[in-house]
């Protein structure tokens, strides 16, 4: 399962799900699905999210069980 820090970083920058969704051209619901881990985004969307949240894709997403999981 893909884990992520989208919610954490979004909160850090003070974005709502709608704000972030607008920046990466998806609906608020899609951001919510990603945050809840219901849905794994495409590489394109992952790159857009990383850019919007000023981080790298591998800092934003990682596989469950990886060392990053211990964050």
């Amino acid at each position: 399962m893909l884990k992520n820090r989208v919610k954490e970083l979004r909160a850090r920058y003070g974005f709502t799900q709608s704000d972030l969704g607008k920046q990466v051209d998806v609906t608020r619901q899609t951001i919510a699905f990603i945050e809840k881990g219901e849905f794994s985004p495409s590489i394109t969307l992952a790159l857009k999210l990383a850019k919007a949240l000023q981080t790298n894709v591998d800092e934003l997403f990682w596989l469950e069980g990886d060392e990053r999981d211990e964050k």
């Binding site: 609906t27 951001i31 990603i34 849905f39």
Partner: peptide, 9 residues
Amino acid sequence: EQDEGMTYI
């Protein structure tokens, strides 16, 4: 189907 998340559900 307005984006990939909605297409997924």
